[in-house]
Design a binder for these strands. Structure first.
Length: 264
DNA sequence: CATTCAGGCAGAATTCGGGT
DNA sequence: ACCCGAATTCTGCCTGAATG
């Protein structure tokens, strides 16, 4: 089934389900509106809806929360912020309908229908979003937006310049810089941001032979740390706050400060 | 040119499991 | 009991195929 046909089938299924509930439905004339339908609540409130097809994969329902179009500059993506009230998601595999308010998530939301291998408090259970359970609309919860990490390339670049380290910045590689030490040895550096969790700085690592060292910028400690790729197998953390119990295996952040570790 | 669904990669946050 | 590293989950961004 092609994409357009599937989208139309979804709209038809949603319309049928709404009518089955006896809900008054208005559809816009033409196709130049940001919403697909308008429904009237029992309280007389009008809600603008965007209909989406839900994808069921690995026990999780996902759907696209933005529109995409193409212009001379390429693909353009636009979110529906302030333009609709909620998404109605129909999952063909399950034949189920879900109601998700636009202010319940930031940029994307996944609805889980099967138990995960590992519990996670951030899981959004599909049952909680089933249309039948949520209609008529009531007060809805608002999730806080996730906090992104600050880009690390710039602070690392500044530090290399401060230390008068000769380097070039590169794109499209797992590493961001190639820097030379005093002996002329080149080091491929990946810049990444770290955040303090339970007294430890954690940062994402890559399984790549093309990275010699990581430069980890931590905004909480306002410090840059240097960790060689061969210091760990898959991941490592740097402790910046003392633990309750001493442990010889602790990797102390102070021992990994860039200024004291360069050259690696 | 506009719109849909689909998939992949990487980042952020959290929990689990093995080692001490 | 506590620590660290590994594993897992959700999210953001991007690209592509297909169609009208």
């Amino acid at each position: 089934m092609d994409a357009h046909q599937k989208g139309e089938l979804t709209e038809a299924a949603v319309l049928a389900e709404l009518k089955r509930h006896g809900i008054p439905v208005l559809t816009p004339f033409g196709d130049n509106q940001r919403y697909d339908m308008v429904v009237e609540t029992p309280a007389g409130e009008l809600l603008t809806l965007q209909i989406k097809t839900g994808r069921l994969s690995n026990g999780v329902i996902t759907f696209h929360t933005k529109s995409q179009h193409t212009n001379a500059e390429g693909n353009v993506y636009k979110y529906y912020d302030g333009e609709i009230d909620c998404f109605i998601v129909y999952v063909h595999e399950l034949g189920t309908l879900y109601l998700v308010y636009i202010n319940e998530f930031d940029r994307r939301i996944s609805l889980r229908v099967e138990n995960p291998d590992q519990p996670d408090p951030s899981i959004n259970w599909a049952d909680d979003y089933e249309f039948d359970a949520r209609w008529p609309p009531s007060a809805h919860r608002i999730r806080s937006a996730s906090h992104g990490r600050a880009p690390a390339v710039e602070p690392v670049s500044e530090r290399l310049q401060e230390r008068l380290v000769p380097f070039v910045q590169v794109d499209d590689e797992p590493y961001h810089f190639v820097a030379c030490d005093d002996s002329g040895t080149q080091h491929r550096i990946r810049a990444c941001s770290g955040s303090v969790v339970d007294g430890r700085i954690r940062f994402p690592t890559r399984d790549s032979d093309a990275i010699d060292v990581y430069c980890v910028h931590c905004s909480e400690t306002e410090e840059i740390y240097l960790v060689a790729d061969d210091e760990f197998d898959q991941s490592i953390s740097l402790r910046v706050h003392p633990p309750d119990q001493p442990d010889a295996s602790i990797n102390w952040g102070d021992d990994h400060r860039f200024d004291e570790r360069w050259p690696p």
